[in-house]
Computed example of a mutant assay.
Amino acid sequence: MALKIRLARAGSKKRPYYHIVVADSRSPRDGRFIEAVGAWNPLLPRDGERVKIDADRVKHWLGHGALPTDRVARFLDQAGLVKREARNNPNKAEPGKKAQERAALMAKAQEEAAAAAAAAAAPVEASAE
């Protein structure tokens, strides 16, 4: 059985509250879980008691092969329980393929317009002399 330490949503509409739970990876997000090991309230300020974790139980489940999701791994890293590797995606800020094609077409059209304007302006200067 593949175990995950993940978030289960609670709270009402537009008022999120999450339980940090140990669950079978095949069970639904808000469905059956084995044990609740903490909570996260994203509405609280970052410097307050936003994340609560039962460190002993988390260590127990990590020892039994439970894998934390990325968000939970961030919380566990802040608590000093798991080392989370920093991610790097240098292509994240680049526009998509279609947007790059549109930008190339616009640049080409601007170059052609500038060349046409320069060609139109050149004979006028020559005839003036």
Rank of each mutant, 00 (worst) to 15 (best):
A117K: 12
A10T: 15
R15F: 11
G80I: 10
D54H: 06
S12P: 02
L43C: 13
R71Y: 02
R9L: 12
A114P: 02
F75H: 08
A113R: 12
E111L: 11
L76K: 01
R15I: 11
R87Q: 12
R32F: 11
R84F: 04
L76F: 06
L76Q: 01
R26L: 15
K98W: 11
A118R: 13
Y18Q: 10
E125N: 07
I20R: 14
K4V: 13
Q110E: 13
A39E: 07
D70I: 02
A120K: 08
K13H: 15
R32G: 15
G80L: 09
E94W: 07
G48D: 14
S12Q: 13
L62S: 04
K92S: 11
A104Y: 08
V21A: 10
A109W: 02
N41H: 12
P16E: 14
R74N: 03
I5T: 06
A109K: 10
N41D: 14
G80Y: 05
P28E: 14
G63P: 02
E111I: 06
I34P: 07
I53C: 09
I20K: 11
K108C: 00
D30I: 12
A115K: 08
R71I: 07
K83G: 00
F33K: 11
A107Y: 03
A8H: 10
R26Q: 15
L7K: 10
K92H: 08
K52I: 05
R74T: 03
V37T: 07
E85Q: 13
R46N: 14
A8M: 14
A79P: 00
E125P: 00
H60P: 05
E111D: 05
R84H: 13
R87V: 13
E94Q: 09
A103I: 02
K59H: 07
G63H: 02
D77H: 11
A122T: 02
R9C: 09
E101N: 01
Y18P: 05
W40G: 07
V72W: 04
V22G: 02
W40A: 06
K52M: 11
K97Y: 11
R26F: 14
A121C: 03
A121H: 01
K97N: 04
L44F: 11
A126L: 08
R26M: 14
A73D: 01
T69N: 04
K97C: 00
A99W: 05
A117P: 03
Q100E: 12
D30Q: 15
A118S: 04
A10Q: 11
A122L: 12
N89A: 09
A113K: 01
G11W: 08
A10R: 15
N88C: 04
V72K: 05
Y17N: 03
S27I: 03
K14D: 15
K13R: 15
I20E: 09
Y17L: 13
P45R: 04
A117I: 04
S27T: 14
P45M: 14
A118P: 00
L81T: 02
H64V: 00
